[in-house]
Write a protein that binds this DNA or RNA. Structure first.
Length: 436
RNA sequence: GGCCCCGUCGUCCAGAGGCCUAGGACGCUGGGUUUUCAACCCAGAAACGCCGGUUCGAAUCCGGUCGGGGCUGCCA
């Protein structure tokens, strides 16, 4: 069993293509088959090397690897159609000389017999039938002698011995043309599977009209590849038992193209975001620390100082519990950075009160003489002082939060104070008290 | 217009004739927890497009209808 994905490098890797690649990859892996990636760049004007790199990079990021094809090589050259134009011309010429095609204003058209019909079994859709009287003679070689998609793709599928073609439903009506070409070339007709399209929220084929739908844009959103992978699996397929969060191994074990739904799915970012949060929470502490520090450094566009790293590490467990994407990280730990610190004036005003001020001054004094600045000591002291002064938690804690973190919304208060460290906390409290 | 595909909560999926007064998840609403924001827990609203047929019995099979979508390029 051999499957392929054949993206056109006329844009960034599109999420719809990624999903098609994923299902092909899964089917190949589930059946101990071969997965091949080739580049369909017959449209030389719109294709570019930059996009090939983007496609390759994002397949790898998603964890989709291939056994044959672009970059990894194999018995068929470089797996780029732009390098095989001679081969396609040769085929077009042979069809011409056999009377199966004809010249039309410099281009070559395949002659579609207008009797009979084409019948084939589609894995997800069952028996398909197209009357040939509905199929037009189609161009296989353009007047500039470059092959069209129909020709190049079909020849490659034959030459590379593809056994199963799973592609988007948008090409379903072109399938009779491809079967006709294969028959004309005396090749075995592979098994077809037309996967349901991905729709935007408006119920139309997902495209640039729906904003940036490239895989790289999802990475830029701070998504984990495992989460996107998991989410894409659920678009048109499910492993059963209402299982929703699962890893690669489980999918490979259960996946079958025959169980893919024939109806289109709307790509809903909301659930994807939720799922990403689940994956973040399920990440081990060590792994999360590693990727978090890297991400923060990336966002800041600089290396982190040792002091910052040790502070951040202390708060990370709390942050991991409450973020949805990696992009939520840096804003949450911003107050721990060794950078000019500023309190949001408006928010300060909204929590400021004489009762709060009094609490602030008291805990500063207590903190000052506290030798063991531990998390539990901080919490005990702050709660005790609340009781002493008969102050409500909200009054005492919120003003402290704004004073120490700069805003009303932050990671948990005691953890934030503990992470920031005694010296910086005292300094910030002093600063707030000064301007009271 | 022609050809083709599709049709279960707003969304993703479960359901492959009786187990369905249709199940799970996201989202939404209400509640709990609570020092913020989250996370977490509990509860709730929410769907088989419609009409026929087959059958003792249909979300499940068939036909029609309506609705949505794709293709109709010397793009892929």
């Amino acid at each position: 069993m051999k499957l392929r994905i054949a993206p056109s490098p006329t844009g960034h890797l599109h999420i719809g293509n990624a999903r098609t690649a994923l299902f092909n990859w899964l089917y190949a892996r589930a059946n101990n088959g071969t997965f091949l990636v080739r580049i369909d760049d017959t449209d030389t004007a719109r294709s570019s090397e930059e996009y090939i790199n983007d496609i390759v990079k994002n397949f790898k990021w998603l964890g989709i690897d291939w056994d044959e094809g672009i970059q990894v090589g194999g018995p068929h050259g470089e797996y780029k159609q732009s390098l095989r134009f001679d081969r396609y011309r040769e085929i077009a010429e042979s069809l011409l000389s056999r009377g199966l095609a004809y010249e039309d204003e410099g281009a070559i058209r395949f002659k579609v017999p207008n009797e009979n019909s084409i019948v084939f079994d589609d894995i997800t859709r069952g028996s398909m039938k197209f009357e040939l009287s509905d199929v037009e003679d189609f161009i296989i070689l353009r007047s500039d002698k470059s092959p069209t998609y129909h020709l190049a793709s079909t020849v490659d599928d034959i030459d590379y011995e593809i056994t199963t073609i799973a592609r988007g439903e948008d090409i379903l009506s072109s399938t009779p043309k491809h079967i006709l070409l294969m028959q004309a070339l005396n090749a075995d007709v592979p098994t077809f599977c037309h996967l349901p399209l991905l729709f935007g929220p408006d119920g139309k084929k997902l495209s640039k009209r729906h904003g940036d739908t490239s895989v790289s844009s999802f990475r830029d959103m701070g998504l984990l590849p495992e989460a996107l992978f998991n989410y894409m699996c659920l678009l048109g397929w499910a492993p059963g038992n209402d299982l929703e969060i699962f890893d690669k191994d489980l999918v490979i074990q259960k996946f079958d193209l025959a169980n893919v739904l024939p109806n289109p799915a709307i790509f809903d970012t909301t659930k994807l975001l939720w799922m990403n949060g689940q994956y973040i929470r399920n990440t081990s502490d060590d792994d999360f620390t590693l990727s978090a520090l890297e991400k923060i450094s990336q966002d800041l566009d600089r290396e982190l100082f040792e002091k910052e790293i040790s502070r951040i590490k202390k708060i990370l467990p709390s942050v991991q519990e409450r973020i949805e994407t990696l992009n939520d990280l840096t804003p949450q730990i911003k107050f721990l950075l060794d950078e000019p610190f500023e309190v949001n004036q408006e928010e300060w005003d909204s929590v400021n009160s004489s009762e709060g001020q009094s609490y602030l001054m008291s805990i500063r004094e207590i903190f000052k003489s506290l030798e063991d600045f531990s998390l539990s000591n901080i919490e005990n002291i702050m709660r005790e002082e609340l009781k002493n002064k008969d102050t409500k938690p909200k009054i005492g804690f919120q003003i402290t939060r704004v004073s120490v973190t700069g805003t009303k919304v932050s990671p948990p208060l005691f953890e934030s104070i503990y992470a920031l460290g005694k010296d910086a906390v005292l300094a910030r409290l002093a600063e707030s008290i000064e301007k009271l």
